[in-house]
Amino acid sequence: MSKYLKSLTIALAASCLTAPVMAEKFGLGRAALPAEIAAWDWDINAMGDGLPVGSGDVLDGEEIFAEKCAACHGDFAEGVDNWPKLAGGADTLDHEDPLKTVGSYWPHLTTAYDYIKRSMPYGNAGTLSDDEVYAIVAYILYSNDLIEEDFVLSNENFMEFKMPNVGGFIVDNRAEAEYAIWSGEPCMTACKDSVAITMRALVLDVTPELDGNTATTAVSATAAPEPAPEPAAPTIDMELAAAGKNVFKKCKSCHQVGEKAKNRSGPVLNGIVGAAAGSVDGFKYSKALRVAAQDGLMWSEVELAAFLAKPKAYLKGTKMSFAGLRKEADQTAVIEYLKTFE
């Protein structure tokens, strides 16, 4: 008997003794059909196993991204508000508050394909074609300055692409780096000479109030899982509102504000910030907006900004033919201006 067989026999004997149920089958379940497996088994591992045949280029990607991704991730993959930033952050991983994006942090490009294909777009997951996913991934690489705009990404060249941070990961080494030091009989008395308070949570004041569910002021300079949004300003910033008046010129052909304002091709915008969507008397809204209004859409500053950034992407079927305010500063300014009209 070879050494291998002998040890195998011992192992089998041992397993029979300790776990007699090992080999038992219950005859439960049924065979999965190939079509069923194909419908669910979409994952693509870091070796590229599972990548479908297809291709997409940066320019197509830009268009698809603008339509399907930019409402959250920004036109340039820079991220809107608290939504994930997909671009930027190169060489920041060893800085305070590193910016972790697909370009700066993700070790494998396959992860982007796998995730976008299975889980995106947010709220409409799994609806992108294989070519659309290639194009979006190409656009994200382009947004990270990792490829040129004429690049065509396909299953043929996908695995040749090396992510900048591919070498940036180590397997969990806590056992060696930590467990060895943090063990044994701990100190019980006279463990330190003095104790002083070095930081207080009440000074930072970011804890939600306990009798309501609303957060208090919410600026976090520290390591929260996601960066904190700017807190809503309690009063109107008149300087910003003045800048917004200038931006509003783009809106004036359709929207009026002020005492004598009337509905034109767009509704009167007095009091729009914070108002329920679709609530201006006498204006005939698109079906899309009426549905959104029924679902409880409120024009908070966040919602308005998202709408203004890319109206048609935000609300498919809206009558508003305006292309959108690309710059976040313009969105903020015009919203501030609108706040001056009750």
């Binding site: 994952d43 693509i44 591992n45 870091a46 070796m47 196993d49 972790k100 697909v102 942090y105 993700w106 070790p107 494998h108 396959t110 992860t111 982007a112 796998d114 995730y115 889980s119 990961f169």
Partner: peptide
């Protein structure tokens, strides 16, 4: 599988 997927939830 033989390999970890290295999914979004276990990398990014």
């Amino acid at each position: 599988t033989n390999e970890p997927v290295e999914s979004r939830e276990e990398t990014s």
